[in-house]
Amino acid sequence: LAVVNIIIAALYVWTWRDRSWFDVVLIPEYLNHIQAGLYLWSALLYSKQDTLGGYYTMAVHRIELSASCVELCTAVGWMLTWYIAYTRTLGRGFTLDDPDTIAYMTTTSNTLIYFVYNIQINLRPEEYGSNMLYAYADVLGFIGSVYYIFGTLRDDNWFWFLPVAGQYGVAVGRIEVVTKQLPKYGLPPIVITDICKHRRKTNASSDSSTTPDSELTNF
């Protein structure tokens, strides 16, 4: 499983292949490689564990504590990456209607619970095997992965058969609303101010034409 974790981390980096290696959005992916490597290291030491407080047992606990800490930073970094690089449109945003929102919330909660669990195991090694806090983290991780699958299928337009109200299959450029051009009848529209101005000029010219010459000379 640790090897699979490293492969998944490499695939995450590959998804950002159009960006620079020094792009800020790749920082969580590099951290993901570090935590995957730490978990692989701890997995290689599992066979050497003997007693609860033994050297290799405590080494595994410390390595996994470090890995869970890096994993928590990775999850927070993914949230920031989502905020920076995510395309927001109808059905894709900050609400719980968006599967990506639920996915990163459950993933972050999952890593936080793992971090707390590893702290407890390092402080009280005798609880290893009886402390079941990690089970809640596993459940949240599974829920988050399912929602990530939904979000990925949505982005790849797999839910094209659902209506727009279903909030799926809606992305930039996916849906084009064609407006109808209604037929035009009658005269073209006339701005009222033009008529008023024309009427004022007409009235002024008519008044000047009816003014007696005597009044003009007296003025």
Rank of each mutant, 00 (worst) to 15 (best):
P125T: 00
Q35P: 04
L31M: 15
G151V: 05
G37L: 15
Y148T: 07
Y55E: 15
S206P: 01
A135Q: 10
R199C: 04
A43L: 06
A135N: 08
L140R: 02
G77W: 07
E64F: 02
A165W: 02
T152D: 09
V70R: 06
V146M: 14
S20R: 14
C73T: 03
G173E: 08
K197Q: 04
A2I: 07
D18Y: 14
V13P: 00
E215A: 05
W82T: 05
K201R: 12
T89M: 06
G54C: 10
I113Y: 00
T210Y: 01
W14C: 01
S47P: 01
V178G: 04
L187C: 07
Y136M: 11
A135L: 15
L133T: 03
S66P: 01
G173W: 03
Y114G: 09
G54D: 14
L45N: 07
A10I: 13
T15S: 12
W14S: 02
Y148D: 08
G129A: 06
L65I: 04
A67K: 01
Y168N: 06
R62Q: 13
I113D: 01
Q120E: 10
A103D: 14
A2Y: 08
A2Q: 12
S209F: 02
E127Q: 10
W14P: 00
L26E: 06
A165S: 13
H33G: 07
D194S: 13
G173Y: 02
L11D: 10
S205G: 05
D50A: 12
A67M: 04
R174V: 05
G151C: 07
I121W: 00
L72G: 00
Y86T: 13
V70Q: 06
I6A: 00
H61V: 01
D155P: 04
Y30H: 11
